[in-house]
């Protein structure tokens, strides 16, 4: 079964993310970002805006979680 461009991009993004020593993102999160990017690509501008908004929120949530994780580790 061949892979589509999207699937390749997801695999590649996961691999690149894994290679980052201080990545803030999980495998699932990076994959979701790429899949959402593909959804945005073939959507109209309104939906596209919503999708990018969703991605932006996801990234912000990850950064917040990272801060609280750090705070937790300091407290711990």
């Amino acid at each position: 079964m061949s892979k589509t461009g999207k699937q390749i991009a997801v695999s590649e993004a996961v691999a690149v993310n894994k290679s980052l020593s201080d990545s803030m993102f999980s495998e699932e999160e990076v994959g979701l970002i790429v899949r959402l990017a593909w959804t945005a690509r073939r959507s109209n501008s309104t939906i596209k805006g919503d999708v990018y908004e969703k991605i932006a929120r996801l990234i912000e949530d990850v950064s917040k979680r990272h801060v609280s994780d750090e705070a937790g580790s300091v407290e711990g």
């Binding site: 991009a9 590649e12 993004a13 690149v16 993310n17 980052l20 990545s23 803030m24 993102f25 990076v30 970002i33 790429v34 990017a37 990234i59 912000e60 990850v62 950064s63 917040k64 990272h66 801060v67």
Partner: peptide, 17 residues
């Protein structure tokens, strides 16, 4: 700063992809 770093990381990943 964290948020910016997170965006930067995704950008870096996307650039390499």
């Amino acid at each position: 700063l964290r948020h910016s770093k997170a965006v930067g990381q995704v950008l870096d990943v996307m650039r390499r992809v």
